[in-house]
């Protein structure tokens, strides 16, 4: 498969997107890592850069107005809840969300949560807002787990997002990943997204795939990345070829350039 494959969320389509038979695994070499680091180092920065798929999709524009809300907190809490459900299958989704919430509050109470973090935000919420946070995260967790159940038994929640610090370039790349499908050496990264996929959704997936591969100590590239938009009933999939990987890395570099230009303009 070349380019982005778009499918609906019927069982037949989900069977198709998870089938990676015949896709040869690709590995990033040390030389390729070094070449990427050189590219990032050549883009000046006065601060520590943080780049992700969101910036790639928004053409390098920084999200300056992020604020925690029931909606922005649902992925963190919902995914944490699903990790609880995986460990303790008899736990209900809302019980698991309360556990995830308690973890955040515990961190805040021990003074481990930094200012502006989710834990700090939750610790200061009024009683009814906690209810809406729980409702939103429970809905997220339930919907994701239902789709995961249709992607086969090998699927599991990803423990954390992928982070890759580019040596000597003051740049951290973040690749979001919600779940992974692993069978032997075969690996698929799964992302759940809100809303409708935009024109740049494929670029975002490519960037996530590239960071996932860079964060792997052996440089193993997942054979496929699947982006699922449950609200739109749409799945997009991309194969983990060297071509896809290069395009993902190029988009991240381009985001760094755009970000640098924005900072320079503000400074001027």
């Amino acid at each position: 498969m070349n380019g982005v494959m778009q499918r609906d969320l019927t069982n037949t389509s989900l069977d198709e997107v998870r089938n990676i038979e015949g896709i040869a695994p690709v590995i990033i070499t040390s030389e390729q890592r070094d070449a990427l680091a050189v590219r990032f180092r050549s883009i000046p920065t006065t601060h520590h850069r943080r780049l992700d798929a969101w910036m790639v999709e928004k053409a390098g524009i920084q999200s300056s107005d992020f604020a925690w809300s029931p909606i922005t907190s649902r992925r963190v809490l919902g995914n944490a809840a699903l990790r609880y459900v995986e460990r303790t299958p008899q736990m209900t989704y809302s019980e698991a969300v309360y556990e995830a919430l308690a973890d955040q509050l515990d961190r805040a109470a021990r003074g481990h949560a930094r200012t502006g973090s989710l834990g700090q935000w939750i610790a200061n919420l009024d009683h009814p807002i906690v209810g809406i946070v729980v409702a939103e995260a429970t809905t997220w967790a339930t919907q994701m787990h239902q789709i995961m159940g249709r992607l086969g038994p090998e699927i599991a929640m990803a423990a954390v997002d992928a982070y890759y610090d580019v040596a000597g370039a003051r740049t951290t790349l973040r690749g979001r990943r919600d779940a992974r499908i692993e069978a032997g050496s075969d690996r698929i990264v799964v992302r759940f997204r809100s809303g409708l996929p935009g024109r740049t959704a494929g670029s975002g997936l490519r960037a996530d795939l590239a960071v996932d591969a860079l964060a792997d100590p052996q440089g193993r590239v997942a054979q496929r990345i699947i982006g699922i938009w449950p609200e739109a009933g749409v799945a997009l999939a991309l194969d983990g070829t060297m071509e896809t990987l290069r395009a993902g890395a190029r988009d991240l570099v381009r985001s760094a350039i755009v970000e640098h230009r924005q900072y320079s303009r503000i400074a001027a």
Binding site: Y93, S94, T139, L196, E231, A232
Partner: peptide, 15 residues
């Protein structure tokens, strides 16, 4: 009941 998997404020956007 929680076994009914209640989800609230579920949005959809079909193109």
């Amino acid at each position: 009941p929680s076994a009914w998997l209640p989800r609230t404020a579920v949005r959809s956007a079909i193109r």
